[in-house]
C-alpha cells in the first residue's frame, strides 16, 4: 500500500488528490523553466535604498515590528556628511549592483544590513560565524586593506566558495583609501555541503 494511502486511513476525513498524469507534470516542469536565466540587468542606485527593501516583508506593520525590536544592534550606519561620502558597491546574489555612499569607519556588514542586502551576520559581527563573507573584486583594493587576523582567517577557512580575496564583511571598515571598493556576495546555496562546513 502506498504511504499516502496509509496516511489516508489513519487520518479520518483524508481525501486523496486525483492522480497526476505524466503529461501534466511535464507541462508543469516546462512552465518552471520559462523565466529566462539570463543575468538581471544591473541596477545602480547610488545613495538610495534598493527597491527590494519594501518587497521583502509584506505588510508595513511587519516592517515596523521588526525595526522597532530593541535587540537589533547592528545595521546602523551614519549618513555621510556632504562631501565626505565614500562609495562601496555590493554585487548581490542575483548579480544586481548596489552602489552606496557611506561614511568613514562603517563596516561592510552594517552597511549591507542597513541597505537590506542579503547578508545575515548571524554572530552580530563578532567574527564567529562567516555569514558575512564577501569577495573583494579588485586585488588592488584587497591589498589596501589591513591583513585579516588569525580569528578572521580561521572563520574564512570555513566559508563557502572561499577566494583569494575573500574577507569577512564585519571586519572590513571603510577608509578613504577604500573609496570605490567593489565586493561580491557569494552565492551559497549552490555548493552547500555539510562536509565542507563542519
Amino acid at each position: 500500500m502506498s504511504t499516502p494511502r496509509l496516511l489516508a486511513q489513519t487520518l479520518p476525513g483524508l481525501r486523496l488528490a486525483p492522480r497526476r498524469a505524466a503529461g501534466a507534470i511535464a507541462q508543469h516542469a516546462r512552465c518552471y523553466t520559462k523565466p529566462s536565466a539570463s543575468p538581471a540587468p544591473a541596477a545602480i542606485s547610488p545613495c538610495s535604498r534598493p527597491a527590494a527593501r519594501h518587497a521583502r516583508w509584506s505588510s508595513p506593520f511587519q516592517r515596523r515590528a521588526f525595526s522597532a525590536s530593541p535587540a537589533v544592534s547592528h545595521g546602523h550606519v551614519e549618513t555621510p556628511k556632504a562631501g565626505e561620502e565614500l562609495y562601496v558597491t555590493f554585487i548581490d546574489k542575483e548579480g544586481m549592483e548596489h552602489k552606496i555612499a557611506v561614511s568613514k569607519g562603517a563596516n561592510l556588514l552594517d552597511i549591507a544590513q542597513a541597505h537590506d542586502l542579503e547578508m545575515e551576520g548571524a554572530c552580530g559581527g563578532s567574527c564567529a560565524c562567516s555569514t558575512c563573507h564577501v569577495i573583494v573584486l579588485d586585488q588592488e583594493y584587497y591589498d589596501k586593506m589591513p591583513e585579516p587576523d588569525d580569528d578572521e582567517n580561521d572563520m574564512l577557512d570555513l566559508a563557502f566558495g572561499l577566494q583569494e580575496t575573500s574577507r569577512l564583511g564585519c571586519q572590513v571598515h571603510m577608509t578613504p583609501e577604500l573609496d570605490g571598493l567593489r565586493v561580491k556576495l557569494p552565492s551559497m546555496t549552490r555548493n552547500l555541503q555539510s562536509s565542507d562546513f563542519k
Binding site: 502506498s2 489516508a8 476525513g13 481525501r15 486523496l16 488528490a17 505524466a22 536565466a37
Partner: peptide
C-alpha cells in the same frame, strides 16, 4: 479534509523539476 498526492513514479521528472526550479 487533508489531501495527499499520489507517489510519482518518475525520477526524471523530479530531477527536471528540481533543476528548473533553481533557475526560477
Amino acid at each position: 479534509p487533508i489531501r495527499w498526492a499520489q507517489p510519482r513514479a518518475c525520477a526524471k521528472w523530479t530531477q527536471t523539476l528540481r533543476a528548473s526550479c533553481s533557475a526560477r
